[in-house]
């Protein structure tokens, strides 16, 4: 039985899709069978980030409605053969997904894969709630910025009340993934630091992804950053985060911080 992981955030544009692709690809490279499911009905983008936009034939809605069989809709990655994508539909009908339909697809995927990543749409509406509904684990993608932290807090509230696990009196394993972190700015007090974010959200940390140009380069060419530039700082942080998701006890280190002349002169350090 595979593990279902929702990648969520509340706020848009913080890196849910990028993180879904990077974490999923990192796990698939270690031989795990991984399915990435795009729940952003109407605004699908995981296919583009994965470089599979021209290979989409059937989508999640087609499968839930019985128009296509699951194996027909799953797209196998051309780089890693244990990595699969189930794209979202481009329909404008927001009610195209039903709870029962999603339940069937998720349970079928659980049988076949070690990991099922559900890439949530932004917001806290139906789509986001369906994406998290059957999750065992949640990766909450957060930028060190007030609106993102507030929205993450809202999402944590939903994970604790609207998921199947919560309704059964169990709880979803929640992890914070801080993305676009700039260690130098945090050290100067210009950006919330990691401890601030963790303390405010009182949720354990999965990883810190540094702000890095390689992430945009990877999306430009349609490849998860963990595949196209595995030695890049952001990719390494994603690979470590994936290992922690596997249960490995890996210490989180602050991304490399370049000290400027004045920082050294005045002896400022990271908190």
């Amino acid at each position: 039985m595979g593990k279902v992981v929702v990648v969520t955030s509340g706020k848009g544009g913080v890196g849910k899709t990028t993180s879904t692709a990077a974490l999923g690809a990192a796990l698939a490279q270690t031989g795990k069978r991984v399915a990435l499911v795009d729940f952003d009905v109407g605004l699908r983008n995981l296919d583009l980030i994965m470089g599979a936009e021209r290979r989409v034939v059937f989508d999640l809605v087609n499968v839930t409605q019985g128009v296509a069989k699951l194996p027909q809709a799953l797209i196998r990655d051309k780089r890693v053969d244990t990595l699969f994508l189930l794209p979202a539909s481009q329909t404008r009908d927001k009610d195209a997904l039903t709870e029962e339909g999603v339940a069937d697809v998720i349970s079928a995927l659980r049988e076949k894969f070690d990991y099922v990543f559900c890439d949530s749409p932004a917001g806290i509406e139906r789509g986001a709630q369906l994406a998290m509904r059957y999750a065992d684990d949640a990766v909450i993608v957060t930028n060190p910025e007030v609106s993102s932290v507030r929205d993450s807090d809202r999402i944590i509230g939903l994970l604790d009340s609207r998921t199947l696990k919560a309704e059964r009196g169990e709880s979803v394993n929640k992890h914070i993934l801080v993305t676009r972190f700039d260690a130098a700015r945090a050290a100067r007090g210009e950006m919330l630091n990691i401890n601030d974010v963790l303390e405010i959200l009182s949720t354990p940390l999965l990883g810190i992804i540094p702000e890095n140009q390689g992430v945009l380069r990877a999306s430009n060419i349609g490849s998860p950053v963990t595949l196209s530039e595995p030695s890049n700082a952001a990719a390494r942080a994603y690979i470590d985060a994936a290992k922690r998701l596997e249960g490995e006890d890996l210490p989180v280190v602050l991304p490399f911080q370049r000290q400027g002349f004045f920082d050294r002169l005045f002896g400022r350090r990271a908190a």
Binding site: E145, V146, V149, R150, D153, R185, A186, R188, G189, E190, M191, L192, N193, D196, I200
Partner: peptide, 16 residues
């Protein structure tokens, strides 16, 4: 000069 992050932290704590 201290950065603006402590202000962000405090505003969030009160609001949340």
């Amino acid at each position: 000069r201290r950065g603006s992050a402590p202000v962000a932290r405090e505003r969030l704590q009160v609001l949340l």
